[in-house]
């Protein structure tokens, strides 16, 4: 095992591993493209439902059940089921996209829903009192206040997509997972490790990029930074909500790796 680092480094150093259809760049492109497209589809499907249900205060059980189902159903099983179903006859793209979207929806939906429900009722009341309509309330009060959790959901969904796209290589999809599965087929430990390093780095990079995006787009986070008066943000400080029973289960753990 001692020289596995050397052999992995040698694998990375070989230019033939970077070019061509099986090369790192092509697989990386596939992975990123698949993730981006599916993230857009997942958001388009999950966010409207979550925001409207959250606004209306309905469907809490649905949101919780979707999160639980997303955790209990094995990603690998769903991928294989879709690939060997009639959907798989048309090629690899459709089953891969469906599986990816299915597993990205739960974190996006539940986080956005919880974010909407956690909006301070006083803020909602005040907006109503100012004569805002339901739509104005949603867009101008609730959504901005729920934005940090909506972004957390999108970030978790994106990381989930990277993970599911990796697994899609097992039944024959594209992406960086193919480097790992090919490594297993060739009994080439260095290639397996190299592929795993690439996948892990990509997942971490996505996490970091979204964490930065979240910091930039969070207006209240900005308001809390030094230089602003604490008075401006009083009552809006939802980063430190009062502890209750629900708060003891950290939010981040509402998702699972895949």
């Amino acid at each position: 095992m001692g020289d596995i680092f050397t052999r992995t480094a040698q694998w990375f150093a070989d230019p033939s591993h970077w070019s061509g259809t099986d090369g790192v760049w092509h697989r990386f492109g596939e992975h990123l493209w698949l993730t981006a497209v599916c993230l857009v589809i997942s958001c388009a499907l999950a966010l409207p439902v979550a925001l409207v249900l959250g606004h209306l205060g309905r469907g809490g059980a649905l949101a919780a059940n979707i999160a639980n189902a997303g955790r209990a159903v094995p990603t690998f099983a769903v991928l294989v089921l879709l690939f060997i179903s009639p959907l798989g006859n048309s090629g690899n793209t459709l089953p891969t996209v469906i599986a990816l979207v299915l597993f990205a929806i739960p974190p996006i939906l539940t986080n956005a829903y919880v974010g909407m429900r956690e909006v301070d009722p006083d803020a909602r009341e005040a907006a109503r009192g100012m004569g805002m309509t339901g739509g104005q309330l949603l867009w101008r009060v609730e959504l901005p206040l729920a934005a940090p959790l909506v972004m957390t959901g999108i970030r978790t969904g994106a990381v989930q997509l990277i993970a599911t796209a990796t697994l899609a290589a097992l039944p024959g999809g594209g992406g960086l997972g193919r480097i790992i599965t090919a490594g297993f087929a060739l009994r080439d430990t260095a290639q397996v490790v190299a592929g795993a390093v690439l996948v892990a780095l990509l997942a971490l990079a996505v996490e970091v990029v979204f964490a930065i995006l979240q910091r930039i787009t969070d207006p209240h986070g900005a308001a809390r930074r030094p230089g602003k008066s604490a008075k401006d943000v009083r009552g809006l400080d939802r980063q430190n909500p009062p502890t209750d029973d629900r708060a003891t289960a950290p939010r981040e753990t509402e998702t699972e790796p895949a």
């Binding site: 097992l170 790992i180 430990t189 397996v192 490790v193 795993a196 790796p257």
Partner: peptide, 13 residues
């Protein structure tokens, strides 16, 4: 954050 297939591949050596 590390995907499962990668996690267990990294432990392969």
């Amino acid at each position: 954050t590390i995907p499962s297939l990668a996690m267990f591949s990294l432990l392969l050596p």
